[in-house]
C-alpha cells in the first residue's frame, strides 16, 4: 500500500492507478527484421528487479494520464515520478 504522486493531480492512493509494467521497453523500429530470440526478449523477458525499478503507471481513476515512476520494489518506496518520454532522473 502506498501513495503515488501523479504529476498532474498530486498525491493519491495507489488504488486509483493501474500498473503498466517495466518502463523504457522500446518497440522495435523494424519489427519484420527481428528473429525469434529478439521477439522473445521484447515480448516476454523482464528484469523483474528487486530494488529500484522504472515502471509505468496510469491514473485510471483520475486524469487517465500515463507517467513513469521509480520505485524500490523491496519496500514499495517511490523515489521519483517523471513524465512519459523523459529519461529517469540520475
Amino acid at each position: 500500500m502506498f501513495i503515488i504522486k501523479c504529476p498532474y493531480c498530486g498525491e493519491r492512493d495507489h488504488s486509483e492507478f493501474n500498473y503498466g509494467g517495466e518502463a523504457h521497453i522500446v518497440r522495435p523500429k523494424q519489427p519484420s527484421e527481428l528473429n525469434d530470440d529478439q521477439w522473445a526478449e521484447y515480448l516476454f523477458m523482464r528484469k523483474n528487479i528487486k530494488g529500484l525499478q522504472y515502471e509505468r503507471w496510469n491514473h485510471a481513476h483520475g486524469c487517465r494520464q500515463w507517467f513513469n515512476v521509480g520505485r524500490d520494489t523491496s519496500n514499495d518506496k517511490i523515489h521519483f515520478v517523471y513524465k512519459m518520454g523523459e529519461n529517469p532522473p540520475k
Binding site: 522473445a40 516476454f44 523477458m45 523482464r46 528484469k47 523483474n48 528487479i49 528487486k50 520494489t73
Partner: peptide
Amino acid sequence: GHSSVLANMAGIKLPLES
C-alpha cells in the same frame, strides 16, 4: 519469487514478474 534475482546473478533473463 526471487528467481529473477538469481537469474540476474547468473547473467540470464527470465520472463517472470514477482
